[in-house]
Write a protein that binds this DNA or RNA. Structure first.
Lengths: 129, 129
DNA sequence: ATAACATATCGATGCTTGTGAATATATTTG
DNA sequence: CAAATATATTCACAAGCATCGATATGTTAT
């Protein structure tokens, strides 16, 4: 959205808050909050969430909790084609969630960090409520 | 993927593991792991992650950490049109992450659960490594 | 070297999503 | 009631994504 559009929103907020001083205070607070956005970290965070936003990838992560597996084993355990599994693994890898170890003609994948398991636990908490 | 395709993958795994007994053991273990999938919870979990996979929605959640805000305030703080903000809010609401309170012509949104903040902290940990 | 094999990549396809303008709905104000 | 306002919904569109078959790449076995 361009600068002009933002002015429109300022006017919108201004009108919605009748008391002039109250508007200034509110706008100031909102601007302060918006300044707090970590523009550097947000894309990485969104990327991690996006990587976990697919059921098949959640299954892969769950499988890898028990230890590393090669692509053919993951393909066996999931209901997807080999190319699809390979694609999902590259998404997870690109988000930094899994690591790869090549051995001969096999590629073994594992979780890159135990904190991922904590993340899944937290989400389970939310779902169970 | 249909049943036929799965048989292909069984053969694939069979071939890749030369020792017959070892294959049986491995396949058994993988099937056990796959049986552990919580098919009921997975869609909800994926939905939550998907709701958090957009930068603007992450910003909304961060804004709401400080308390409830109406749509016009969120529109003021973000760089999106009112309809886009409204859309993002409905995605968050649909995933169960925010709750709505209507008061006159205003709609106030707040986080539905403190665990969401924990979730964001966990992700920040992953990003910072 | 040739065949078999594991995995990655490409290409195509149908589905989903983010976006904003325009419009609809509901509420308040004059 | 009419005008103004806050929010939701509809519509259209471009971009992104999940999927699979086919193919390419690299490795092992014969």
């Amino acid at each position: 959205m361009d600068k002009k559009k933002n002015d429109v929103e300022i006017e919108r907020l201004k009108r919605s808050i009748l008391d002039k001083d109250k508007f200034e205070l509110r706008a100031q607070k909102l601007n302060l909050l918006a300044d707090g956005f970590n523009e550097e970290a947000l894309p990485s965070e969104a990327k991690i969430f996006k990587a976990l936003s697919d059921i098949n990838r959640l299954k892969i992560v769950q499988l890898l909790k028990e230890g590393e597996l090669c692509v053919c084993e993951l393909t066996f355990a999931l209901s997807n084609s080999q190319s699809t599994v390979s694609h999902h693994l590259s998404v997870l890898k690109n988000a930094g969630l899994v690591k790869e170890r090549k051995e001969g003609k096999w590629s073994y994948f594992r979780l890159s960090d135990g904190a991922i398991i904590e993340l899944l636990k937290q989400v389970k908490l939310l779902v169970d409520k």
